[in-house]
Design a protein around this nucleic acid. Sequence first.
DNA 1: TTGCAATAAGGTTAAACAAGGTTAATGAAA
DNA 2: TTTCATTAACCTTGTTTAACCTTATTGCAA
Lengths: 230, 230
Amino acid sequence: MKTKILYVEDEPFLGRIVKESLESRELDVHMVMDGLAVLPELEQFLPDLCVLDVMLPNLDGFSVAKEIRQRYPHLPILFLTAKTQVEDVVQGFGVGGNDYLRKPFSMEELIVRIDNLLRMNKNQSFAPVRNTQAIYLGNYEFWPQKFELRLNDQTRKLSHRENELLKILAENRHQTISRKDMLMRVWGDDSFFNSRNLDVYITRLREYIREDPKLQLVTIKGIGYHFITD
Amino acid sequence: MKTKILYVEDEPFLGRIVKESLESRELDVHMVMDGLAVLPELEQFLPDLCVLDVMLPNLDGFSVAKEIRQRYPHLPILFLTAKTQVEDVVQGFGVGGNDYLRKPFSMEELIVRIDNLLRMNKNQSFAPVRNTQAIYLGNYEFWPQKFELRLNDQTRKLSHRENELLKILAENRHQTISRKDMLMRVWGDDSFFNSRNLDVYITRLREYIREDPKLQLVTIKGIGYHFITD
DNA sequence: TTGCAATAAGGTTAAACAAGGTTAATGAAA
DNA sequence: TTTCATTAACCTTGTTTAACCTTATTGCAA
């Protein structure tokens, strides 16, 4: 499957050139022209990387990045902007950006920077969970697109929330994941009630993975969880 | 423990300014002025990140980067150079660089870019304990990724704080570790209450390792602790 | 130099508190 | 009307705070 780029740009001219240029490098590019359209598209498309223009109608690129970062802590974000002031760069990294390229830029440079971010991120997250492949968790097979968790020849159907949560845990196994990240990605906010909700789902997932004692969902009180799979 | 930066720069003037500026941000900076001196220093110092000037005497920055990359696949490398041609940028990423900043640059921008690389790399660097499996402490086995401390066939689950603290002690066994370092790494600050907190956890860890009299957690009053494991 | 406070640092234990675990009941949607 | 998500109630555990005790270090007088 091709690497997927979500490209947010409101200048149609520049947009088309960049999009085509990236596509000619075997990247699957979706372009969005409005800040408000980014999050819905993101959830649909599940890209491997975002390229964001900063000046956008309705919702500026920095705000968009903040929202993205809340839900997807490891998704690489590259800003592409005419703002050349150092304060803008600082702000860009401050809201969770991972690179910042000033306009005008050369396509070559954009490409090597994209490649670099993808390379750095490869072992992180996100990317693993997508296509029709299974994720192996101890003796279990987890099929996130099918909402299924298998052990030998038993298959358990997962609900939407169960599936989302297990996906996040699986993507981030062997790292500590904050409760906040989980809440933002599964529920979209981290209010008190959703927080107790998360506890309920953690209990349920622990029950589902109980058959393999190698799988451990360790609580880190006050912080989050740590999923151990071997 | 401070984050360590290896800075390779042959212009003494610029070098001093950048070094001091980074040090004022609580980074531990070693500066090297010759391409050939980089690898030995690297192995000694084991930095968390390298900042490389490209034009160097004896061995240029790109070649140095290639060597570094061979040995340390995940160590972040940031190029800092007067070369502004796109081909140079492409080459920089091609040899394994992770960011490329053109001279003249602002200190602010360098700092946010360094922070960004460190943040992105957090979970896969080559720091001493992270990639290790078990750490053997006398008759005990300590599995920091699993939050487990084993003796023969008994396994004790450690809490987050217990685990962090034992990790620091284990990493620094046979050296004196200051209370301040421990507090900063486990609690993030060294206020009075956390300080008493540390005492409580030290007591607890002493109880956990009591079965092997070779293990001694020696108090050095007014300074810190010294963990003896044989 | 010895001996003896005085003080500060840390040790130990238990209580208080907050975070999360568990289970069941309620509510909403298909 | 069954399934899933949410809310609620009650329980367990880790972390922090507090109180009291022990040990090292310091300063000073004999």
